[in-house]
Nucleic acid binder design. Structure first.
Length: 489
RNA sequence: GGCCCCGUCGUCUAGCGGCCUAGGACUCUGGCUUCUCAAGUCAGCUACGAGGGUUCGAAUCCCUUCGGGGCUACCA
């Protein structure tokens, strides 16, 4: 099992960007990265874009961007280069062609002239008779005459790998000893009729050529492992040099189906727009299918690297839980310093057009942030929460108007105006002291009653940051103007 | 259908034969705190899928069964 002792660990993340990177991809990338960092090995990033009809440049760039944003830096791959490049499979086509030809030459593979319709008919028959479906070996040992005949018919040929009798065994770091009988691993296609390589060829060739030592990937690839190992053998790799496999459990959607676009917000870009911190996303994702073994849950990226081992990865699938992600994000936000918080918050305020970004605005935002830091779970909530400080034409939300126009409220507002006007040091402590002594002590009102009208008048609604701090931030002039305005309703 | 993987609170997990009348976190419920909303804090609800074994003793080992998932492409 420990065939790689003494060898420097190299882990790769090799997505096929057929869409935005999603939660499942990223969980895999995170484990790959954390394992590389934990072992002091290197992290390789490769793009599997052999299926050019499904992968686009846009998605490739987005994938690079997402990984960078999350802080999952790679040592080899797009942008940073490396001695085993290029790292886009679409730029390595001749390499795969070379190996496919070599396999043919070695008789490990053969040309298969069966048409898709013929193959489908075979599968249909197998299924009908409860047989294991798979290629029936029709073209395994064609004679020269038969080949000539097929060519004359104008048939194209795929390159198909010959699976020998017997079986494949390997050790999965997460699932233990795995054994596959080749009766259920039919000969498989390495290259299309047009010569382009398929995943199974490209992935195995690249992992070998790029000297990958550990393959941590989704469990959907578990049953394709014997085919990959077959390619290693055909390449002449010794068994002790095979990469070690670890098949990660799935991340499932709430509806218990494999996470996909259809059952939830899975694109990392969405979380970024919503205002989740990369560290919160990574922290949460790390807990999906893994735990440090004790009760620790709040982890920094550094701690994650220190604690992460494949042995502690679970073998059962995990369901994605947005609530927990939100809880972690809230905790991480509360742990931010004000300057860090400001850096994260500003783009959201500007994007929402709450502010334009003038120094005065930024200064006010910075003063306001402490009172909302413990009230948000994601940055996208900030604009709505601070809007009352910046709106040009302030208005009370319609459903709250009635609460400032009844006689009791008007009384509170009038009295407050009178108490507030003389205050020269406009601080929340001074405001609170004046209001409490007057409204609570003298008028005998319940705090909740007394301050609701003021809250609505100054912030526009029944829910707001703390009242006195909000009034302080608003400034004396604006606060009094709003209270006066409410009195005219 | 065939092959394969998986199965502890609603969710993520701890547990690797006795420390388990099963621990933690999130959610939920209730209390405290309180100028609203939060945050904080205290308490509570809730789990070893089922059935057989093995054993003095099983969540932990074995078998069966049921359930969930994956693969079964000239997708990855």
């Amino acid at each position: 099992m420990s065939t790689t002792v003494g060898k420097k660990v190299k882990v790769r993340f090799a997505p096929s960007p057929t869409g935005d990177l999603h939660v499942g991809n990223i969980r895999t990338a995170l484990f790959d990265w954390a394992y590389a960092r934990h072992t002091g090995g290197s992290f390789l990033f490769r793009i599997e874009d052999t299926d050019t009809t499904r992968v686009t440049d846009e998605y490739i760039n987005a994938a690079i961007d997402t990984l960078k944003w999350l802080g999952l830096n790679w040592d080899e791959g797009p942008e940073v280069g490396g001695e085993n490049g290029p790292y886009l499979q679409s730029q390595r086509l001749d390499i795969y062609t070379h190996w496919a030809a070599k396999f043919i030459e070695q008789k490990d593979a053969y040309y298969c002239y069966c048409t898709p319709a013929e193959l489908e008919a075979v599968r249909e028959a197998q299924r009908a008779s409860n047989q294991a479906p798979g290629y029936n070996g029709h073209c395994r040992d064609l004679t020269a005459d038969q080949i000539a005949e097929y060519k004359a018919e104008g048939r194209g040929a795929v390159v198909r790998m010959r699976m020998p009798d017997g079986g494949t065994t390997f050790t999965d770091l997460i699932r233990g000893e795995m054994a596959f009988d080749h009766k259920f691993v039919p000969d498989f296609v390495l290259a299309r009729a047009d010569g382009s390589p398929l995943y199974t060829l490209a992935v195995a060739v690249d992992d070998v050529l790029m000297k990958v030592t550990h393959i941590l990937r989704g469990e959907d690839l578990l049953s394709s492992t014997p085919r990959q190992i077959r390619v290693y053998q055909a390449m002449g790799l010794k068994e002790e040099d095979y990469p070690v496999f670890a098949h990660l459990p799935f991340v499932m959607g709430a509806d218990n189906a494999k996470l996909s676009k259809r059952n939830g917000e899975v694109s990392i870009a969405w979380y970024r727009d919503k205002g989740f911190l990369p560290e919160a996303i990574c922290n949460y994702l790390a807990l999906l299918g893994w735990s440090p073994g004790d009760d620790r849950e709040d982890l920094t990226m550094k701690e994650l690297c220190e604690l992460f081992t494949v042995e502690k990865v679970n073998s059962s699938p995990a369901k994605f839980d947005m609530k927990k992600l939100e809880a972690i994000n809230g905790d991480k936000i509360r742990a931010l310093t004000i300057d860090q918080f400001l850096d994260w918050a500003l783009p959201f305020l500007i994007k929402a057009k709450t502010i334009t970004g003038t120094p005065d605005e930024i200064d006010l935002v910075k003063r306001a942030l402490p009172i909302i830091q413990e009230r948000i779970i994601m940055f996208s909530e900030i604009p709505a929460m601070l809007a009352f400080l910046f709106v040009k034409d302030f208005a009370i939300e319609s459903e709250s108007v009635a609460k400032v126009t009844d006689s009791g409220a008007k009384e509170v507002l009038k009295r407050s105006l009178k108490e507030l006007e003389p205050i020269s040091d406009w601080t929340h402590t001074a405001i609170e002291a004046a209001l409490r002594s007057s409204l609570i002590d003298e008028m005998g009102l319940k705090p909740r009653i007394a301050f609701t009208a003021l809250r609505i008048a100054t912030t526009g609604g029944t829910i707001s940051p703390p009242l006195f701090e909000s009034m302080e931030l608003l400034g004396k002039e604006a606060a009094l103007a709003r209270i006066s305005a409410a009195l005219t309703l």
